[in-house]
Amino acid sequence: MKQKLYQTVDAAVADVPSGARIFFGGFGGAGFPNNLIQALDRQGASGLTAITNNCGSGDGELGILFKHGRIRSVIASFPGPHARHFQELYTAGKISLELVPQGILCERIRAAGAGIYGFYAAVGAGTAVAEGREERVFGGRRTVFYEPLAAEFAFIKAWKADELGNLIYRKTARNFNPLMAVAAKTTIVEVEEVVPVGSIDPEAVVTPFVFVHRIVRAKGIHNVVKA
């Protein structure tokens, strides 16, 4: 059976090439794969496309990757006023940004994982989001077409994994992580704890192992956000 467990976060991200397209889980300081992000920064890949809800807080979360110029392009819902390094690059015109409504971001990712080639939703109709997109009217309501959003890698954070890669999450640290897990060629998860196969109740598994390719244990880092 394929061994998915990696001994270090650096080993887990060693083959991420420059120019890669990567999902990053996390919301509001919870559920960010901070150890993987920092390992990627050490590894030095650049010209990356980041698909994420937000763009870090100071040097925290994705902040360090923007600070060191690793990311060229962003698809995000709410980059955030505290994403200082991103905002500097954006204002200087050094980074491209596609803003996506948050729930549509979720569904575009889910669609990519589910073999769905796009969908129509009323969200965004008549707004800047619809510019350049196909519109159709269903039942008298204007809708906008959204294509799926896939990536080569997903960097996610879970609470526990078994050695196969079945995952459970902790409270609101779940957020985007299970969605992103299904839509990447290579899903890399950092977890607080790795447990033997059979010790997670099958009823409790949130992400089944088929979606998980690499597991690495790392003590979680919370970048506490001051509201």
Binding site: N54, A76, S77, F78, P79, G80, P81, F86, Q87, Y90, T91, L97, L99, V100, P101, Q102, G103, I104, V123, G124, T127, V129
Partner: peptide, 11 residues
């Protein structure tokens, strides 16, 4: 200034 952000508001 800055990028602005949509977040969950449109959905």
């Amino acid at each position: 200034k800055g990028s602005g952000g949509i977040g969950g508001a449109m959905d």
